[in-house]
Structure formats: C-alpha cells, structure tokens
C-alpha cells in the first residue's frame, strides 16, 4: 500500500511531463497529419536551454530566490524553444507541405538526428548535472519505517502543469486561434477560403507545442537534475505513446495518456522489473494501436470505399 501510494505520486509527476510533451505531438498530428519526430528532441533542447539559463541565473547573476529563478528559466526556455520550433517548421516542414506523404516524416527524422547531434557537438556528450532546485520533502505517511514522501519539486511540477494546461485550455477552446486550428484540422483548403491564415495557424500550433515541451523540459531537468543530448528519444517515444493511447488528435486524450503511461511505468518498475519498463511502454503502444487504434478518447476512423 505504501509503495503503491509512493509510486502513484511518482507516476503522476512523470505522467505530467509526458502529457505536456504529448500535447505537442497530438496537436501537430491533428492539424497536418504528421508525426513530428523531432518533437522529442525539441524537448531535449529545451532542457538544455533551461540548464544554461539556470546556470546563468545562479552562478553569474546570483539570484537566490528559487521561485523567481524557476520562473525566469521557464520563460526563457519557452521563448527560445518556441523560436527554434518555429524555425524548424518554417525551414524543414513547410516546403514539404502538400507533397509526398513520407517526405515530412523523413525530414522530421533527419531533423531529430540533426538536433541530437547538434547538441552533442555544441555542449559535449557527457551528462549535465545541476544542483537541486528544491530539496525538501513532505512525509505523507509512514509505516514500519517506510516513508511515503511528496517532494516539493513534485508539487511544483503538478502546480506548473496544472496552471499551464489551464492557460493552454483557454487558448485552444475559447479564442479565435483555437477556432482557426479546429478549422484547419477539418479542411485546410476550406479554412483558407473562409479567411483563416493556414500557414500562420500551423506555425502557432508548432510554437504552442514547443512551449509546452519546453515546460516539460524544464520540469524534467528540475526533477531529475541531469540531462544529456540523448534524452530526447525515449521520452519522446513515450509521449507519443501517450498521445496514441489517449487518442491522437484529442487534447484531453494526450494528458490522460500521459498520466497513464507515467503510472504504468512507475508501477511496472515497482512491482515487476525495472529493466523491462521501456518494453512495457512500447508494448502498450503496440497493443493500443492494434486493438484500439483510435485510442481512449479519439474518434474512430471509418474506411471510405
């Protein structure tokens, strides 16, 4: 029971991070039908941006307030990552829109390889540890010397995720931007005929996805305290799994999928085998796609004859 509660706490934390990344996958897939393979690496890049920003703040500027520095780091990471993602969309994906179906996917894989190796060359191949932001923990319950703890950083992750998702939710459901996005999802030609700027809407979609990935990247760095250039691939795949599990194209689905993947991973590690936790995640992906291709909250696809 204690282990279960502990893993529940850990799982929700991990799941929040996956959910934030998954939204980027699901939005881009929804609007242009493309698996943005480089999204996991955009997430990794954002963690590096956060790393450098926090080092500047702490070692150079000597800002001691943890909350202030976290806020600045978050904003820096979101801005710069959005800019990078905008540029990627502009240079590597937009010229391929409407052409051969595989071309954007291959371009995205190429971009993923490029980003990973760019960071490796620019920042070196070693793991990058940072001193912890928050060290305090709250003991939730105790039994036979086993303490179930809730770390401050986990609370921060939950809070930041909740606030940003609320803001994001408002953006896509209540504003004209959200309406333009839904119009482009349905039919890009028709949307442009009724005056929606399709290129701009798609750019904004990439920017929002990247900004949320940057939040995930910053929280990931804060949670684990270490990042390396290769850290984009596996979280990226897991977040994609989350998007598929929740029903690709569905925004609540992405979050739900993220939480489920996070929980399954932590529970699997606790009760079965930590070695095979990634195998579990990939197996869920396979099983979902085979038996429930529309995901938990997605719309079923009808074959048109």
């Amino acid at each position: 029971m204690e282990i279960f509660v502990q893993q529940l706490i850990n799982g929700i934390t991990l799941g929040s991070i996956y959910g934030l990344i998954a939204i980027g996958y699901t939005m881009v897939f929804g609007i242009i039908g493309m698996v943005n393979f480089a999204h996991g690496d955009v997430f990794m890049v954002s963690a590096f941006v956060a790393l450098i920003a926090s080092l500047i703040l702490t070692t150079w500027l000597g800002i001691s307030s943890v909350f202030l520095s976290l806020l600045i780091v978050l904003i820096c990471a979101m801005l710069i990552t959005s800019l990078i993602s905008w540029t990627i969309e502009r240079l590597a994906y937009r010229p391929l829109r409407g052409s051969f179906r595989l071309a954007p996917l291959i371009s995205a894989i190429g971009m993923s390889i490029f980003l990973m190796n760019f960071v490796q060359v620019a920042q070196g191949p070693r793991n990058k540890p940072i001193p912890p932001f928050f060290q305090n923990v709250i003991v939730v319950m105790e039994k036979d010397g086993y303490e179930v703890t809730l770390a401050y950083k986990q609370i921060v992750i939950w809070a930041v995720t909740a606030i940003l998702l609320a803001a994001f939710w408002y953006l896509v459901s209540k504003t004209s931007l959200g309406r333009a996005q839904r119009a482009c999802e349905q039919d890009q030609n028709m949307a442009s005929l009724v005056g929606v700027d399709v290129d701009r809407t798609i750019s904004v979609t990439f920017i929002i996805g990247a900004a949320l990935a940057a939040v995930a990247g910053t929280l990931y760095l804060m949670y684990y305290g270490v990042v390396s250039f290769a850290d984009g691939f596996v979280p990226g795949i897991k977040a994609f799994t989350a998007a598929v599990l929740g029903g690709i194209g569905s925004l609540p689905g992405a979050l739900l999928g993220g939480l489920l993947i996070g929980l399954i991973e932590t529970m699997w590690s606790a009760y079965f085998s930590i070695d095979y936790k990634d195998v579990a995640a990939f197996s869920i992906l396979v099983v979902t796609l085979i038996f429930l291709p529309q995901g938990l909250l997605g719309r079923p696809e009808v074959e048109k004859v």
């Binding site: 190429g110 390889i113 990973m116 490796q120």
Partner: peptide, 8 residues
C-alpha cells in the same frame, strides 16, 4: 549531424 541535415 551532417547526415541528419542531408536528410532534410
């Protein structure tokens, strides 16, 4: 790095 760039 160049391999990825060449793909794009």
């Amino acid at each position: 790095l160049l391999f990825g760039l060449a793909m794009v």
